[in-house]
Amino acid sequence: MFSTLLTVLFLITSLPNESIAHTKVTSTVPANEAVLKKSPDEIKLTLPESLKITALKLLDNQGNELTLKQDKNLNPVTEKIAIPPSLDAGTYRVIWRGISADGHPIKGQITFTVSP
C-alpha cells in the first residue's frame, strides 16, 4: 500500500504544469477586446519564451482574411510584429498558431474594434 501511494505521488508531481508545458502570449498590441479610435499601426504578440509562429492572420467581422505585412521566417521568436492595412471601423480578429520549444502546438486569438 505504501509503495502504491508513493507511485501515485510521484506520478502527480511529475506531470507537467499547464503553465510550464505551454507558452502563452504575455501581451498583445492591440490588447484583446480593445476599442481603438484609429486603425492600429501594428499587431504585436509578446511571448515569455521563444515560439515558432506558423500562422498569423487578421480577419474582418465577416471572416475575410486581410493582408498583413510580416516576416514569415519560422525561427523561434519572443515577439512577432505584423503591419495591417489601414482598417475601417469594425471588429477584427487576430488568429495565431505556433509551435513551442517542447514541440506542442499552440494557438490563440484576440479581437479588437476600430470605432467609427
Rank of each mutant, 00 (worst) to 15 (best):
residue 2 F to Q: 13
residue 3 S to P: 03
residue 7 T to A: 13
residue 7 T to V: 12
residue 7 T to K: 14
residue 8 V to L: 15
residue 10 F to H: 10
residue 11 L to I: 11
residue 13 T to G: 14
residue 13 T to R: 14
residue 13 T to F: 14
residue 13 T to V: 07
residue 13 T to N: 13
residue 14 S to R: 11
residue 16 P to R: 14
residue 17 N to E: 10
residue 17 N to C: 09
residue 19 S to N: 14
residue 20 I to A: 07
residue 26 T to Q: 06
residue 29 V to F: 04
residue 34 A to C: 00
residue 35 V to L: 09
residue 35 V to M: 10
residue 40 P to V: 00
residue 45 L to T: 05
residue 46 T to N: 13
residue 46 T to G: 03
residue 47 L to I: 02
residue 47 L to E: 02
residue 47 L to P: 01
residue 49 E to K: 15
residue 50 S to F: 01
residue 51 L to H: 06
residue 52 K to P: 01
residue 54 T to L: 12
residue 55 A to Q: 15
residue 57 K to N: 15
residue 57 K to S: 15
residue 59 L to A: 08
residue 60 D to Q: 10
residue 61 N to P: 08
residue 62 Q to M: 10
residue 62 Q to K: 15
residue 63 G to F: 03
residue 65 E to F: 02
residue 65 E to K: 12
residue 65 E to A: 09
residue 66 L to P: 03
residue 66 L to Y: 06
residue 67 T to S: 07
residue 68 L to D: 05
residue 69 K to D: 13
residue 69 K to N: 12
residue 70 Q to M: 10
residue 71 D to H: 06
residue 72 K to P: 01
residue 72 K to R: 10
residue 73 N to I: 08
residue 74 L to N: 11
residue 74 L to S: 08
residue 77 V to H: 07
residue 78 T to W: 01
residue 79 E to A: 12
residue 80 K to P: 02
residue 80 K to W: 08
residue 80 K to R: 12
residue 82 A to W: 05
residue 83 I to N: 09
residue 83 I to T: 15
residue 85 P to V: 00
residue 89 A to M: 04
residue 90 G to F: 01
residue 91 T to L: 01
residue 95 I to Y: 02
residue 98 G to Q: 03
residue 100 S to I: 00
residue 102 D to C: 12
residue 105 P to M: 14
residue 106 I to Q: 15
residue 106 I to Y: 06
residue 108 G to S: 13
residue 110 I to Q: 10
residue 113 T to R: 14
residue 113 T to K: 15
